[in-house]
């Protein structure tokens, strides 16, 4: 993509853009909606949905029929019918309310801190000239592969030494550390897509790096931040390992940890069905957030999606 293709859209043209988008939609309907393509899309969508749908149905079935008959039989006469009990039981067995709060408390800083740090680092890697830049970037990139398990004990000892054990700090800091390499890698790619001319122009105007970062680049990166934000959110929200190791006490345990404990210990195999409801309780928030953030994805990601 070259610089000339990027242009900036003022806010007051939103309305115009909407009309344009509607026209474009009507026009593209012709462009790609060949019957073959539509069929492929529908097949993919159905295939992707069936497994989850099966679990959704399962979560509304009585626990005792789950291991003995397929979920699709729920729609037949002998299928055992539907019930809300699984959700009730899942919610009360572990009293998931406080864990919901913990997950929330954990998630917000664990998204905000790594993304901010990654943006700053990515900026430095993309636009600040300093010695050892490439080496450092490759090193950060390669750190993605470090298995989290080898870091657990050293980090625990560090937090203990700092006196942070028992608080949310170890969880926040650990999520930050684990999220940074990928975040920097992705943000760096987004940063680099921004044409040199824009940055150069600002520099000629006498803006320092901090100013360029906040005034010029940040607005262009909103969709990228939203896109990465949702993935960092998913990783943190669904994480089991970091929460288990670093949350310190049951009082701070996040939602997936509580859900995992739902089925109790050995000899509680008959509570397996509770996990189906548990999985959907955990899933609800990410889905809402994805739907809410979709409008940020309407416009481009990599080039900052700005038009005018």
């Amino acid at each position: 993509m070259t610089a000339g293709e990027i242009f900036v859209e003022p806010v007051d043209r939103k309305e115009a853009r909407k009309n344009k988008a509607a026209m474009a939609a009507a026009e593209t309907a012709k462009r790609i909606s060949s019957p073959g393509a539509s069929i492929i899309a529908i097949i993919l969508a159905v295939l992707w949905t069936i497994p989850t749908f099966g679990l959704l149905v399962t979560s509304f079935r009585p626990g005792d029929v789950v291991p003995t008959s397929g979920w699709w039989t729920a729609f037949t006469a002998g299928g055992g019918g539907f019930t809300f009990n699984t959700y009730k039981e899942a919610w009360t067995t572990q009293a998931l309310g406080p864990n919901f709060l913990n997950s929330f408390v954990i998630t917000l800083p664990a998204i905000l801190i790594p993304i901010t740090l990654a943006l700053l680092a990515a900026y430095a890697f993309a636009w600040v000239d300093f010695r050892g830049r490439n080496f450092l970037f490759v090193a950060v990139f390669a750190l993605q592969i470090v298995p989290i398990q080898v870091t657990l004990l050293p980090l625990l000892k560090t937090y203990k030494w700092l006196g942070l054990d028992g608080s949310f700090w170890p969880v926040w800091l650990s999520h930050t550390i684990y999220g940074l390499p990928l975040a920097i890698f992705l943000m760096h790619n987004f940063m680099k897509e921004i044409p040199r001319e824009i940055v150069e122009a600002a520099r000629v105007d006498g803006a320092g790096h901090v100013k360029i970062f906040f005034k010029v680049l940040m607005p262009l990166l909103v969709p990228a931040i939203a896109a990465f934000g949702i993935f960092q959110f998913l990783w943190v929200w669904n994480d089991l390992l970091v929460g288990t190791v670093f949350s310190g006490s049951k009082n701070n345990a996040p939602l997936p940890l509580a859900v995992q404990q739902l089925i109790g210990n050995l000899g509680s195999g008959n509570r397996q069905y509770l996990l189906s409801a548990g999985a959907f309780i955990v899933m609800a928030v990410p889905l809402v957030i994805f739907l809410a953030l979709q409008r940020f994805f309407v416009r481009g990601l990599l080039a900052g999606g700005v038009k005018g």
Binding site: W48, N238, P256, L275, M283
Partner: peptide, 8 residues
């Protein structure tokens, strides 16, 4: 499926 944990 992205929204579901590996355990899920």
């Amino acid at each position: 499926p992205m929204a579901i944990s590996m355990v899920g």
